[in-house]
Amino acid sequence: MVMVVTKPCSGCKYTDCVVACPVDAFHEGETMLYIGEECVECDACIPECPVEAIYLDQNVPAEWEHYIELNRTMSQHLPQITEKKEPLCE
């Protein structure tokens, strides 16, 4: 895994990034998205995130570093999402 979804996604769950992903690396949780090991580091999702929640793993802010492992773990147990849905917030 290379890209990581972090705290700003929690409670919003915008899915603009999902449709930009060429390898279906996003997984849907109840309140946020996660990126799985399918990620190929294309960076296509980063500019699509309206809340700037996606980072290259080596660029994740220190206070959100635990999201690296959280993405790895949660993506293994959650279904992939490939279509845009209504966000939880506006």
Rank of each mutant, 00 (worst) to 15 (best):
T73L: 13
E41F: 07
A20W: 05
T82F: 13
G11E: 03
Y34S: 07
V60H: 15
V60M: 12
E63Q: 12
C17E: 12
A53T: 02
H27L: 01
Y14K: 01
P61Y: 10
L70M: 07
E52A: 02
T73I: 15
G11F: 01
S75I: 00
Y14W: 06
N59V: 05
C49H: 05
V23W: 00
C39T: 03
P8A: 01
V60G: 11
E48W: 04
I81C: 04
C9A: 10
V2T: 15
P47A: 02
A62T: 09
E63H: 15
P47R: 05
V5H: 09
L88G: 01
V18W: 02
K7Y: 15
E30Q: 08
V2F: 15
H77M: 05
P61Q: 12
N71L: 06
C39E: 03
E28P: 04
K84N: 10
T82W: 11
E52D: 13
D16T: 09
E90F: 03
V19K: 10
Y55T: 07
V2C: 11
I81T: 07
V2L: 14
P8K: 04
S10G: 09
K84E: 15
D16H: 11
V19I: 13
Y55E: 13
S10W: 11
C49Q: 00
T31N: 03
E63N: 06
P8R: 06
M1S: 05
Q58A: 13
V23A: 07
A53V: 04
C39K: 01
T6A: 13
K7I: 02
C12G: 14
I35N: 08
K84G: 02
V4S: 07
P50C: 09
P61E: 12
L56A: 12
T15S: 02
P8T: 08
D16S: 08
A53D: 01
D16K: 10
E38M: 03
Q58K: 12
T15F: 06
D16W: 09
Y14S: 07
P61I: 06
C9G: 00
L78K: 07
K84L: 04
F26C: 02
Q80D: 04
Y34V: 06
E86F: 08
S75C: 01
K84P: 00
Y14T: 02
C12N: 14
A20M: 14
Y67F: 15
